[in-house]
Design a protein around this nucleic acid. Structure first.
Length: 485
DNA sequence: ATGTTC
């Protein structure tokens, strides 16, 4: 496997390290890594920081090539990286978004407390497992016609709200209202569309999950109140993305970009950073297709939430609307979007690539729903099975130095292959049940890959992000039931 | 992440 990374880092403040431009020929900006010394040691175990230096070589990159505390090695760009490029002179890169376009989080709050679900979590998990298709390559109950699929790709979550009666008010609590402008279904290949037509409302596999959680501890009372969180509140957290469609869009455009770098004479330290100028035909086409896949991701998560509400109601023998379920927030962590940020004192339009990183807009941002605007944007950070997840809130400091971004999860410390060798799924299943967590999993091998010990400590990651000022903890959530693909 | 190696 990969050797450790031994390159130079300079301390740059609390939980911050600078990777100087002098490290590598071609770096246009320095790297900036958010970590404490213990996380840094884990980060140095793979080549993620070499990838941070490589990303710094992208044409038109501005500020820093950023590394969140949960960074690890990925395809070309690290997972846990943020790269902003100039709106006109900069590039768009599929590797800076990742294969699962708009993979992200959907968090539902309920009117239920711990007492309401006591002794009934197993039944809830059974209903969730029965009604939400999961696993690799599975089909959902919907089969979309070409026109319907184009509707999803253009309108995202709005299409689901219109078509299936999901609460339109929920759209207000989704990043971009669940619909990214600029989506162009014509730029999505027929192969990608074929993979998508029966996958709306499916969970997928790998680290995708549905969890029933309870609020265990509040850290920020004002933000918790704004987000409607109380100790003991029951939540449903969904982690999923754009399924086979996003994967195919990424694959298709990596090929396009490999030709584009030759056509435009773009020099890169790693072919996996393949990209094209944002204003070029290739760049525009990628954005149109990426936005369409992102919209499929938002539609998918809203529909999964709709299925989860119905499952919860069935399990508890009540009507869905009596459960008091509403979307707390929904946002992606694999996406590139046009945003405005202040760079060297001046507001600028940028392309912000977040790959395994979460938008964390601070208080007062006009894109936030009115109910949250004073406190800042909710940030949803899943931990791993058997530990915790967190709700964080974005900060002004994040706006000032990380293009409004923070961490997205615990971050792997063991490869999937290594986890499968070291851990037996059945044993893990028993261990989690022994801890009082109801587990429903399609694949025992898949469960083993997602074992808690395969991940870093999410509590440390969110504390380091908070120490650096990128986000603050609002609530720690404890899993009661876990469903995995 | 992924019709888990088009």
């Amino acid at each position: 496997m990969a050797e450790g990374w031994a390159g130079p880092l300079e301390t740059a403040g609390v939980n911050r390290w600078r990777l100087p431009r002098s490290y590598k020929d071609g770096m246009n900006v320095p790297g900036l890594i958010y970590a404490d010394s213990e996380l840094l040691e884990q980060i140095r175990a793979d080549q993620a920081l070499e990838q941070v230096a490589n990303v710094a070589c992208l044409p038109g990159i501005l500020g820093h090539s950023l590394a969140m505390p949960d960074i690890h090695w990925g395809y070309g760009f690290p997972i846990g990286g943020v790269a902003a490029t100039d709106f006109r002179q900069g590039v768009l890169s599929p590797g800076g978004v990742g294969f699962d376009i708009n993979c992200g989080m959907h968090l539902l709050r309920t009117g239920l407390g711990l007492a309401d679900v006591a002794g009934r979590v197993g039944r809830i998990m059974d209903e969730l497992y029965a009604s939400i298709p999961s696993g690799v390559g599975v089909s959902g109950s919907l089969k979309l016609s070409p026109a319907e699929l184009d509707g999803v790709l253009e309108q995202g979550a709005t299409w689901v709200a219109r078509r299936h009666g999901a609460d339109a008010a929920d759209l207000e609590f989704m990043e971009e209202r669940g619909r990214l402008a600029g989506a162009d279904p014509e730029k999505v290949s027929s192969r990608a569309k074929k993979r998508a037509r029966d996958q709306l409302g499916t969970l997928g596999s790998g680290n995708h999950f549905v969890e029933v959680q309870a609020v265990e501890e509040l850290f920020d009372k004002a933000a918790a109140q704004a987000f409607g969180l109380q100790e003991g509140s029951i939540l449903v957290m969904i982690h999923s993305g754009s399924r086979g469609l996003g994967h195919q869009v990424c694959t298709d455009y990596l090929e396009t970009m490999n030709e584009a770098i030759v056509r435009y004479g773009i020099k890169l330290p790693d072919r996996q950073l393949a990209c094209a100028p944002a204003g070029s035909p290739e760049g525009k086409d990628y954005f149109g297709a990426m936005a369409a896949a992102a919209n499929f991701g938002w539609a998918n998560r809203l529909y999964l939430g709709h299925l989860a509400r119905q499952a919860l109601a069935r399990a508890l023998g009540t009507a869905p609307r009596e459960l008091g379920v509403s979307v707390l927030y929904d946002l992606g962590h694999n996406i590139v979007k046009p945003e405005e940020h202040v760079v060297e004192g001046k507001p600028r339009r940028l392309w912000v690539h977040r790959k395994g990183a979460t938008r964390a807009f601070g208080p007062g941002h006009p894109d936030l729903p009115a109910a949250y605007r004073e406190v800042g944007q909710p940030v949803l950070v899943p931990g791993d099975m058997g530990t915790h997840s967190y709700v964080l809130v974005g900060t002004s400091a994040a706006m000032a130095e990380s293009f409004g971004s923070t961490c997205h999860g615990a971050g792997r410390q063991m490869s999937r292959a290594a986890a499968k060798r070291a851990i037996r799924g059945e044993e893990l299943h028993r261990r989690l049940e022994g801890q009082g967590i109801a587990v429903r999993a399609k694949s025992m091998a898949g469960l083993a890959e997602e074992a808690p010990e395969a991940y870093k400590d999410v509590s440390r990651v969110v504390e380091v992000a908070e120490g650096a000022g990128l986000s603050r903890r609002v609530a720690r959530l404890r899993p009661l039931g876990v469903m995995k693909g």
